[in-house]
Design a protein around this nucleic acid. Structure first.
Lengths: 167, 167
DNA sequence: CTAAATGCAAACCATTTGCAACGGA
DNA sequence: TCCGTTGCAAATGGTTTGCATTTAG
């Protein structure tokens, strides 16, 4: 039994809820991934291991994991809700590649300090903050430079797996 | 004719589009407000002045305004698309009061500099960034302090006009 | 035995799209 | 006239909810 599973159980018991096979499976699949999965992505992964688990249960369990402090809901602005590991993970921000959808986590203490200072200046009590830098990652920049050398005209748009233009 | 109207006309003509009464009205209503209106909010304002204008037209025109550089789409994570004035407005970030929905704009050059430095460190080419600080604004903190003094138990949740818990 | 959990289908809801009628240039 | 525009209604798509059935404690 991992530490996360214990946290989940404790939360479940404290709230008078029940432990079920579906919840165990969903938690395990979630723990197994390090990506910023959307609810739907996770549903597909879970569904692959047990097709009898419904979409609804995955959505509901993800909310439960967030409540238990194991997962954190992240909205990247693509219309989907993503979840990332939260238990014993320090706060961090994200850079999102608009070309390939890759997500880079980073942290800067100065950044945090300045944010807090700005909030204090406005007598604003911070509950949470979210910083998102959108652009082109190193790999895609390299690829693009290379591509530019080969052809000057043909410009292909690689569809990103997770970040969509609209919803 | 304001500067913004000229920019809009220029954009329309450059793209071979047409000037219509609806588009003029929507632009004017938009310019008249300084808030971070959601598409729906703006639709209601427009609809009040001319009930014959359809929802679709408002949505489409807002996108047009964004294209023309007059408006900027902002996603606050409440599931709605908001638009703010963009023409000759410098970049800024937002603090959002989770209690009353108020939005405070702020700017910090150091914040920008550190973000750029972090991006450079990861060889990441910045296209845009978004910083959102969520918490309790000065007014609501004051109100809450006052309320706490009066009653220790009754805690009312003032529904915020724009920021919703779920979508 | 009882309340919680599940999963299906239907509901939601902001936004988008198809399409026939309309209207600038 | 020609092509963009409009507005209705229907579609979209992620997420939520109602409800009858199942299941953990």
């Amino acid at each position: 039994m991992t530490e996360e599973q214990e946290v989940f159980l404790a939360h479940i018991q404290k709230k008078g809820l029940k432990r079920t096979a579906q919840r165990d499976l969903i938690l395990n699949v979630f723990l197994r991934t390090e990506a910023h999965l959307s609810s739907e992505d996770l549903y597909h992964l879970v569904h692959r291991e047990d097709p009898s688990v419904g979409q609804t249960t995955v959505y509901r369990t993800l909310k439960l994991l967030a409540e238990a402090g194991l997962a954190r809901e992240v909205r990247f602005g693509d219309g989907l809700t993503h979840y990332e590991h939260h238990y014993k993970h320090e706060h961090h921000d994200h850079m999102i590649c608009s070309n390939c959808g890759k997500i880079i986590e980073f942290y800067s203490a100065e950044l945090e300090a300045i944010q807090d200072a700005m909030a204090a200046k406005h007598k604003f009590e911070v509950e949470q903050h979210l910083l998102r830098i959108i652009g082109i990652c190193a790999d895609c920049r390299r690829a693009k430079r290379h591509e530019d050398k080969l052809t000057e005209k043909s410009q292909q748009q690689i569809p990103s797996p997770s970040v969509r233009s609209t919803r």
